[in-house]
């Protein structure tokens, strides 16, 4: 059980990186960027291909970051320079990446079993030094799980601090303002095309990195592993915002990590409770639908309550107001 929760949290820490990427586009830039579905696979595909052909897993992370950024840059160009609506730009990148990812992998999936990963070193270190299998906490994979958790935590919290700094700089402030008000930003002499492209580039770079880390955690990459990633990202983001507040900017970023972890725990829970795993994506989508429609639902329920009071409340006409 401990191990189950631990591995769920570790997984959450990796998906947190995608969540942060989604937060940058969806909340900061105010753009629904679909490219992430392709970039997460791109990162995974490239890392898997590189590792299976003998490159360093660390180098594969950098490469995944770079190609992710390139994909985000492409979406940014489609949207700003070619004037294609943001949603469609993302979809076009996503579709293009499907072909590209197949070519990168050379086949529909790559296994990384028994190959070197970024977790391997730490895993061996833990095995040699902690002697965990002697204290009966869990099975053979415990060190791996711990290693993933530690790497995930270092990377995702590292990214949060880096981004907190970045979005506090002049360029970062300009990007934040762009998501608010293009007019004002241009009137201040800032090229909104540039700020949008930078935001999309950073976001997709993170998502590519996330893909590479996930592929190495699960020991494989498949060409369709990105399907639904945007919805997972949104669900995690919303959970983070609702549960962990959005007071200051650093906390808002942090809450993305906690949201991603909570999302994984919820998924693990509903699976334990007997939800068929085929229904997972539907479940996630319904969560997002519910969360995004909450303001509207509140409105509707207030109207209903009012109608109800007006229809039935009057019968007690003689009652004092008390």
């Amino acid at each position: 059980m401990t191990q189950y929760i631990l591995s769920t949290v570790s997984l959450g820490l990796l998906w947190a990186i995608l969540t942060i990427g989604v937060f940058i586009t969806f909340r900061i830039l105010n753009i629904a960027d679909m490219s992430v579905e392709g970039t997460i696979t791109l990162g995974a595909a490239l890392a898997a291909r590189m590792i299976s052909t003998g490159y360093s897993p660390y180098l594969s992370l950098l490469a995944a970051l770079a190609v992710g950024m390139a994909a985000g840059f492409a979406t940014g160009i489609l949207h700003t320079k070619l004037g294609i609506p943001a949603l469609l730009s993302g979809i076009l990148t996503m579709i293009s990446l499907y072909s590209i990812n197949l070519r990168v992998m050379g086949k529909a999936n790559i296994s990384l079993l028994r190959m070197d990963t970024v977790y391997r070193g730490l895993e061996t270190f833990l095995k040699n030094n902690l002697g965990l299998h002697n204290i009966g906490l869990g099975g053979i994979e415990l060190e791996k799980t711990l290693a993933v958790g530690i790497v995930g935590a270092v990377v995702s919290f590292g990214i949060v601090f880096l981004l907190y700094w970045f979005f506090g700089t002049e360029i970062g402030s300009a990007i934040r303002a762009t998501g608010n008000n293009h007019n004002m930003v241009r009137a201040q002499g800032i090229h909104t095309d540039t700020t949008i492209i930078i935001g999309l580039t950073i976001s997709n770079g993170l998502v590519g990195l996330c893909g590479a880390l996930i592929a190495q955690m699960q020991n494989f990459a498949t060409v369709d592993m990105g399907t639904g990633a945007i919805v997972i990202g949104l669900a995690s983001m919303i959970i983070g915002e609702v549960l962990f507040g959005k007071r200051n900017f650093l906390l808002r970023f942090m809450s993305m990590i906690f949201g991603a972890i909570t999302y994984r725990l919820v998924i693990a829970l509903v699976l334990k409770l007997g939800l068929h795993s085929d229904l997972l994506k539907l479940f996630t989508a319904l969560t997002v639908i519910f969360a995004l429609s909450l303001p509207k639902l509140k409105e509707i329920s207030a109207t209903l309550a009012r109608n109800f009071r007006e229809a039935f409340g009057n019968r007690k006409g003689g009652m004092p107001h008390a």
């Binding site: 700089t169 934040r176 998501g179 201040q188």
Partner: peptide
């Protein structure tokens, strides 16, 4: 609504305006 960024603080808005027409850098905002 058109002249300011609603989600940003008063001082952040002023800081954006203070740098009007200047190149934005990685210095603190």
């Amino acid at each position: 609504m058109m002249g300011t960024a609603a989600d940003m603080e008063i001082e952040e808005n002023l800081a954006l305006a203070m740098r009007r027409g200047q190149r934005r850098t990685l210095r603190w905002g």
